[in-house]
Design a protein around this nucleic acid. Structure first.
Length: 427
RNA sequence: GGAGGGGUGGCAGAGUGGUCGAAUGUACCUGACUCGAAAUCAGGCGAUGUCGCAAGGCAUCCGUGGGUUCGAAUCCCACCCCCUCCGCCA
């Protein structure tokens, strides 16, 4: 959520900056809502103040045993207008909130301006794509002989699910374990195990609700409420600090959490239908940081570096891309995507997304810390994939495939696979 | 699922219709004492919103949502959450 004071004082500036990310801010609608809010709120508070003063008089008179009927008659006259005014305000405020809560974050000044992914800017490339002396297969074909099974998953659940057996399941587990160990042992993150079902308040806090409900799996309950399956560990982990005032020395917080992620992928029916690039369920190791405002931009570089370290240790060529204004997510002030080289697609594909949300999520969550003046101040939040496990498995299969159908194991990963250096299809 | 207890400020914990946004303790901040620290003493110290150039004023907030009342932390209704015990259970 944006700072409402900023909207009031710099409305046209805000609208101009949001236009860069394809969001049309209806400034006339905002001004109308704001004018009405101001009128109703000041009038309501004025009437409440009168009522309170008169009621206090009643109390004092009765305390002294005197007659209060004159004051009671006076206060009775206020009642109707106060009720009307309170009701009108109660009707308006949710509409005001609804308007503000669907406005995306402002892009940081360093974010390249652009309309779509074509406007993204490559920051760096690491590693060189391997030269193959045989026809490369994609991960579906490489994985088929190693236990990657989409047909059975489709029977069990439907499209966009995968079933991993034997070596594939083991490799998947090894990747997640490896990532967790690196982030906890080398990067200083605290490992978490977190709920996979969260309430609507949590989804609002990180920005998935109210605007993106169709992307979520919703689980109704008998009592009429519902829970949501997390689309990323960002949601439960970041919401740890919702409605908290942290001590100054409690930040920064650095958490790493391995969870499955559930996305309905509404609106992407035709994309990446083959293989496990785009699934309804996938595992991810997520990095989350909660920091003081002055530290968040350094933290974004640091966190992105932590995700890059995984790719480097796994010897996977990748590039780092700064997303442009038109391609960023709703809550982000700036995002780096890490894209891994997939030889079968002859392209770099997203495997991590690292963002600084500044105070956007913190304001929705009311997540604060005590600053030097001992006053509550909004924290800044960041997160990034470190990495998406399923897509990492895809990358290993494609980049380390051999002509005979076997798949090499990156050296760093071998301890997690009992020391073997190659996955060999069963005869 | 059954029975009971409880949700009040950063934390602990009083408060059962009228200057109660709320005693007290603790934490924290400032000052005094001290070579310095601890201890002690004195003072300060909730959040959000709103109006205002400011000083400051006002409003709202005692789990959540309704209700009663001139007035609700306090009374009524519904719901949520937590704790203890029993049952069931990975």
């Amino acid at each position: 959520m944006l700072d409402i004071q900023l909207l009031r004082t710099h409305l046209t500036d805000v609208a101009a900056r949001l236009a860069g990310r394809k969001y049309v801010l209806d400034t006339a609608a905002f001004e109308a809502l704001e004018a009405e809010r101001k009128r109703l709120q000041t009038r309501t508070q004025e009437l409440q103040a009168q009522r309170n003063a008169l009621s206090k008089q009643v109390g004092m008179l009765k305390g002294k045993g005197e007659d209060a009927s004159a004051v009671l008659a006076q206060v009775a006259g206020l009642g109707d207008e106060l009720k009307v005014s309170e009701a009108a305000l109660a009707e308006l405020l949710p509409r005001f909130d609804a308007f503000v809560s669907v406005i995306p974050n402002l892009p940081h000044e360093s974010v390249p301006v652009g309309h779509d992914e074509a406007g993204n800017v490559e920051v760096l490339r690491w590693g060189s794509p391997r030269a193959f002396d045989f026809a490369v297969q994609d991960h579906v074909d490489v994985g088929a002989a190693l236990g990657l099974d989409f047909e059975t998953a489709a029977k069990i659940s439907g499209a966009r699910f995968s079933l991993l057996k034997g070596p594939m399941a083991r490799l998947h587990r090894a990747l997640a374990q490896f990532m967790l160990d690196v982030h906890t042992n080398e990067h200083g993150y605290t490992e978490l195990y977190a709920p996979y079902l969260v309430n609507a308040d949590s989804m609002f806090g990180t920005g998935q609700l109210p605007k993106f409900e169709e992307d979520l799996f919703k689980v109704p309950r008998a009592d009429g409420t519902c829970l949501y399956l997390i689309p990323t560990a960002e949601v439960p982990v970041t919401n740890i600090v919702r409605d908290e005032i942290l001590a100054a020395d409690a930040v920064p917080l650095k958490f790493v959490c391995h969870t499955p992620c559930f996305r309905s992928e509404a609106g992407s029916y035709g994309r990446d239908t083959r293989g496990m690039i785009r699934q309804h369920q996938f595992d991810k190791v997520e990095l989350v940081q909660v920091v003081k405002p002055e530290d968040s931009w350094a933290a974004l570089e640091q966190l992105t570096g932590h995700a890059e370290a995984i790719l480097q240790k796994l010897e996977l060529p990748y590039r780092k891309v700064a997303l442009c204004t038109g391609d960023m997510g709703f809550s982000a002030a700036k995002t780096y995507d890490l894209e891994v080289w997939l030889p079968a697609q002859n392209a770099y594909r997203e495997i991590s997304s690292c963002s600084n949300f500044e105070a956007f999520q913190a304001r929705r969550m009311q997540a604060r810390f005590r600053n030097e003046k001992n006053k509550p101040e909004l924290v800044h939040t960041l997160n990034g994939s470190g990495l998406a496990v399923g897509r990492t498995l895809v990358a290993v299969l494609e980049n380390f495939q051999n002509a005979d159908g076997s798949v090499g194991i990156p050296v760093a990963l071998r301890p997690y696979l009992g020391g073997i250096d190659t996955l060999i299809p069963a005869p």
